[in-house]
Amino acid sequence: MNKGQVKGRIEEAKGKLKEVVGEATGNETTKVKGKVEQVVGKTHALYGDAKEQFRKSRKRP
């Protein structure tokens, strides 16, 4: 696992937490910010996944 993957997964989890808090409190702004953080986290994670895949493919003969 590389930094991008870890950072993305953490960001995704933080976003999910914010979304749940926003739903529980009825705060639409917090809920939307949570969804945005989830998208950003998924993007980071996918970038990290692609980087890792590329790195692994370069090691193979």
Rank of each mutant, 00 (worst) to 15 (best):
E19R: 04
V40T: 11
L17K: 10
R9D: 12
G8D: 00
T25R: 00
A24G: 06
Q5P: 01
A50P: 01
K16I: 01
Q38G: 07
Y47L: 10
K18E: 07
G48C: 04
G8S: 06
R9I: 15
K18H: 09
R55P: 00
R55S: 15
E12F: 09
V32F: 09
G4R: 03
R9W: 11
S57E: 14
G4E: 01
V39W: 04
V20M: 13
K16N: 06
G48S: 02
Y47M: 11
A50F: 10
T43W: 05
Q5A: 02
K51M: 09
R55I: 09
Q53H: 11
P61L: 12
K59N: 08
R55Y: 14
K35W: 05
H44R: 05
E37P: 05
K33W: 05
E28D: 13
T25G: 05
T29C: 04
P61V: 15
T30L: 13
K59H: 10
K35F: 02
Q53Y: 11
E37K: 08
N27H: 09
V6H: 07
H44C: 05
G4F: 04
S57D: 13
T29Y: 13
E11T: 15
V21Y: 04
E12S: 03
F54W: 11
G26N: 00
G48I: 05
E12I: 02
K7D: 05
V20S: 06
E23Y: 09
T29A: 13
V36I: 14
A13Y: 05
T29R: 12
K33Q: 14
A13V: 00
R60L: 10
R55A: 15
R9E: 13
G48T: 03
A45L: 11
E37Y: 03
K35D: 03
E23F: 08
D49M: 04
G41H: 01
Q53D: 07
T29K: 14
K51N: 12
M1Q: 03
V40H: 07
V32P: 02
K7N: 11
K7Q: 10
G4W: 02
E12L: 07
L46K: 13
G15M: 01
K33E: 15
Y47S: 00
K7C: 05
N27V: 06
P61I: 15
K42S: 11
G48P: 00
A50N: 08
